[in-house]
């Protein structure tokens, strides 16, 4: 292929993919006045007013903290229980375990629309309606199929010799798990953490339906009320979108390799 043409193509699409996101960032540093007068302009005198307004007046500080809390605890809880379960599944030869694993993995095709109404009533019954705890439990549960699948697959590839050695030295199953396996599964845990963090952070459907109390809103639901109330305060809206995206950008920078490898895992056949 002709190199110059290929280069042009690659850079052109890079612009298509990135320009809207760049406009989002630089418009958040401009004022509404500038946006109307000069829709295509760059920030002349960058201003943080939009961020101040979004963070303080539009309660983004609340939404942000809720999102951090809910996402972090959901990922921690689901990874912890999935790791224990994956260890049991990978190191057991019982027929019962194989059946249980099938049940877990079938959850990969979970019909969220079908489950949401019963979950809503369930949380109501157990007194967790409209709470962050309820949201965390639901997110942890729906994360289990993916996390167990990835972790069990990884554990099966690990040689059992080290565990044997630990057992011969007199370590119990919990001790073996904690001091022998845990250090070894770190790469798989990193993949699971990153790949559950992103969808839970971005999720909009569950909190939209399960959380009715504004003080408990996560960022995506917060965004919807915000877009209703600040319709004409455009730079504030841009700032809100940037705030909702920023933690993911940090995550990409830290974990680019895991993300690219994880998204394409098993696709190379």
């Amino acid at each position: 292929m002709r190199r110059a043409a290929v280069s042009t193509l690659l850079w052109a699409y890079a612009a298509v993919a990135l320009l809207p996101l760049l406009i989002m960032v630089w418009n958040s540093f401009r004022t509404d006045q500038e946006l109307v007068v000069e829709p295509l302009g760059l920030p002349h005198s960058p201003s943080l007013d939009a961020y101040r307004e979004a963070w303080v007046e539009a309660s983004f500080s609340t939404y942000f903290l809720n999102s951090v809390l809910v996402t972090t605890l959901s990922v921690l809880l689901s990874t912890a229980v999935s790791l224990l379960a994956a260890y049991a599944l990978a190191r057991s030869r019982s027929r019962l375990m194989a059946v249980i694993e099938q049940v877990f993995v079938s959850g990969l095709m979970m019909p969220v629309f079908l489950m949401i109404v019963p979950i809503f009533y369930l949380l109501d019954t157990i007194g967790l309606a409209s709470t962050r705890t309820g949201l965390i439990l639901v997110y942890s549960a729906v994360s289990i199929p993916f996390s167990v699948f990835v972790l069990a697959t990884f554990l099966r590839q690990l040689p059992v010799d080290l565990e044997d050695a630990a057992r011969i030295d007199g370590a119990g199953p919990l001790r073996t798990f904690w001091s022998v396996l845990l250090p070894l599964v770190r790469p798989a845990v990193a993949t699971v953490v990153v790949f559950r963090f992103v969808p839970i952070w971005n999720d909009f459907f569950y909190p939209l339906i399960l959380v009715r109390d504004r003080a408990r809103y996560t960022l995506p639901v917060g965004l919807t009320t915000f877009f209703g109330e600040y319709q004409t305060s455009w730079s504030t809206l841009f700032a809100g979108l940037v705030i909702a995206t920023l933690p993911l950008v940090v995550l990409f920078l830290v974990a680019t390799r895991q993300i690219v490898a994880g998204l394409t895992a098993g696709m190379g056949r």
Binding site: V81, L84, A88, M97, I119, L137, A141, V142, I144
Partner: peptide, 21 residues
């Protein structure tokens, strides 16, 4: 022992996924 390790995940999954489904 394996069932014990499995318990937390199984309980969470049963209550918040299998039962609603």
């Amino acid at each position: 022992v394996a069932l014990l390790f499995l318990l937390p995940a199984a309980a969470l999954f049963a209550v918040f996924v299998l039962y609603p489904m």
